[in-house]
Amino acid sequence: MNPRRKKRLTLIVALVVGLGATVGLMLYALNQNMDLFYTPTELVQGKPDGTKPSVGQRLRIGGMVVDGSVSRDPNSLKVSFQVADVGPAVTIVYDGILPDLFREGQGIVAQGVLVDATTIEAHEVLAKHDEEYMPPEIAEAMKKTHEPLQYTEAQMQGSVQ
């Protein structure tokens, strides 16, 4: 084989191996930082494809806070509450300040680690608001500028014809 061709082939092989190693390391790093999302029912019963999270796995869970389930420790910021969707409830333990929108019956998303089959130790809790939410300042401004139109009976009948 020609020395020039041999040099080119060595360079190409080195580039392909280096690129493969780089892609492999990137995929490994992304896999380590991936948090899968579960609902309480999927956490207890498993996803439709049969996968269930294992103890110690990082995950995200979303659902509604069960009424009457919020329990606060009077000596610390530790809070535990239950989250449910249409099925079984899951207990979430959180040590920190909860968001302002957090309340019973409200939707939340928690990120944490699975402690046992139905308990999650959260390190972040996010409260969700409904789609109709509007800050009070904007709602007040819209009331002032967008007065409802008042029609007389004659105007309404004239627009029908």
Rank of each mutant, 00 (worst) to 15 (best):
V113D: 00
E42V: 05
M34I: 13
M134E: 09
A110H: 03
V115Q: 09
L149D: 01
V70D: 02
N2S: 12
G62C: 07
Y28E: 05
E140L: 09
S80C: 07
L114E: 01
V115I: 15
M134H: 08
E131T: 14
D73T: 08
D85S: 11
V66D: 00
I61Y: 08
V160A: 09
G62L: 09
M142N: 07
I12A: 12
K143P: 02
A110W: 00
K6H: 12
E137Q: 15
E124W: 03
K47A: 12
L36W: 15
N2Q: 09
R72T: 15
I12M: 10
L27F: 03
Q157S: 07
T51D: 01
F37G: 04
V55N: 13
T51E: 00
M64H: 04
G20N: 11
L114V: 11
E42D: 10
R4N: 09
D100R: 10
V83W: 00
V125K: 09
S76I: 15
V90G: 04
D95S: 14
P48Y: 04
M34K: 13
G96W: 12
I92T: 11
T91H: 00
V13N: 05
S71R: 10
K144T: 14
F102E: 02
T118F: 07
M142E: 07
A141D: 08
Y38G: 12
E137P: 15
T22H: 01
S69G: 06
V70Y: 02
V70S: 00
K78C: 05
G63Q: 11
Q155W: 02
M156F: 03
H123N: 14
Y38R: 06
K47T: 14
R58Q: 11
L43M: 13
H129Y: 06
E42R: 03
A154F: 07
V55R: 10
S69N: 09
Q45L: 13
A84I: 12
L77F: 02
V44P: 01
A29G: 12
G56W: 08
P148D: 00
G20A: 13
V70R: 01
I120S: 06
T22R: 04
Y151F: 12
A14E: 01
V160E: 11
L59H: 12
S159C: 05
